[in-house]
Computed example of a mutant assay.
Amino acid sequence: MEILKILNNNVIVSHNELNQEIVVMGRGLAFQKKVGGTIDPSNIEKTFVLETHGMSEKLAKLLRDTSEKYLNISAKILEYAQSHLPYKLDEYLYVALTDHISFAISRHNQGIHLKNPMLWEIRKYYKQEFQIALMALEIIEKETAIALGEDEAASIALHLVNSQLSGENMAAAVQITEMVNTILNIVKYHFKMELDEKSINYERFLTHLRFFAIRFARKEKLVETVDEFFSEQIKLKYPEANTCTEKIANYLEHQFNWSLTKDEEIYLTVHIHRVTNRHKMK
């Protein structure tokens, strides 16, 4: 296998049989080797494919100051996460997660334990990602003998959520969580009720809000597909839910300068009616 780039003594960049750029890891893999030389495939311990142009350069910069053992830990976590999530993970997670784990371990060793102010929301709204993040803590502990707390799990979960936003904008993942949390609170206060968080309707509503917020972060707008008549019929049929939607629209307009389309208003109104009406009936 030809060496295209040496990231450090144990990590190199090469090509596989499909001519895809790959990162391969192994103890002493590049020791006394040069670019253009070859390595023995039997010494390879870990391989992963890079589809994004320039990703190997980012990894190279990271590994100048970070041990590749954290890259190996990240690869194990992402392999587990990808097998349990319905969406494709962004490759930038190899960089972001490796850097995060390295910094978290460093802080732990210095006795610095940061609280994640969004732990409660992340655990509640991103249950699948949070469960995967808890498994990530187990992987980290197995590899380093260091037990990190749930605050770190929340941060790892946010990295997974952020992967849907294509990479490096961690602030967007925080903004999405805050937006979802505020919209749910608007619904609760408007109807003066607690929602049944174990119900299918709540899960559907939460999923809708998450993708709704992701579209905002990506600056994506739905193409209008409904006419004025249908929109008015929904308002007449679900007046209370529509009033709640108007409050949400007002919040989004003032807080984010984002105007809802008629489609988005209808979807929100129908979901709000469903999640609140079923609760009333129960």
Rank of each mutant, 00 (worst) to 15 (best):
F191K: 03
A172T: 10
V187C: 00
N169L: 11
M179K: 02
M179Y: 06
I186S: 01
G167T: 08
E168G: 10
A173M: 11
I186M: 03
E178K: 08
V174R: 11
T177E: 00
M170K: 12
V161Q: 05
Q164G: 15
V180N: 00
T182F: 05
K188D: 07
E168I: 10
H190E: 13
V187T: 00
Y189V: 10
A171N: 15
S163M: 05
H190L: 14
T182N: 02
S166A: 15
L184Y: 02
F191V: 04
A172E: 09
Q164W: 14
N169E: 11
A173S: 11
T177F: 04
Y189I: 09
V161L: 06
V174G: 09
A171V: 14
N185Q: 02
H190W: 14
A171Q: 14
G167S: 08
V180T: 02
V187F: 01
G167M: 07
V161M: 05
I183W: 00
K188A: 08
G167V: 09
Y189F: 09
M170Y: 15
V174E: 08
V161P: 01
M179E: 05
A171R: 14
T182S: 02
E178T: 08
N169V: 12
G167E: 05
V180R: 00
N162P: 10
V174K: 11
L184W: 04
V161D: 04
I186P: 02
T182M: 02
S163V: 05
G167Q: 07
E178V: 07
L165H: 14
I176F: 05
Q175P: 09
V187I: 01
V180P: 01
V174L: 11
A172W: 08
N169C: 12
Q175T: 06
A172M: 12
T182Q: 03
L160Y: 03
Q164D: 14
A172L: 12
A171H: 15
K188C: 08
L160I: 04
T177L: 03
F191Y: 05
S163I: 04
L165E: 12
Y189R: 07
T182G: 01
L160G: 01
T182E: 03
A171C: 13
F191A: 01
Q175I: 06
A171D: 14
T177V: 06
I186F: 05
H190G: 12
N181E: 10
A172S: 11
S163Q: 01
I183E: 00
V187G: 00
A171M: 12
V180I: 06
S166G: 14
I183H: 00
F191S: 03
M179S: 07
T182D: 04
V187A: 00
Q164Y: 13
V180Y: 00
A173T: 10
V187L: 00
G167W: 10
S166H: 15
E168D: 10
A172F: 12
S166K: 15
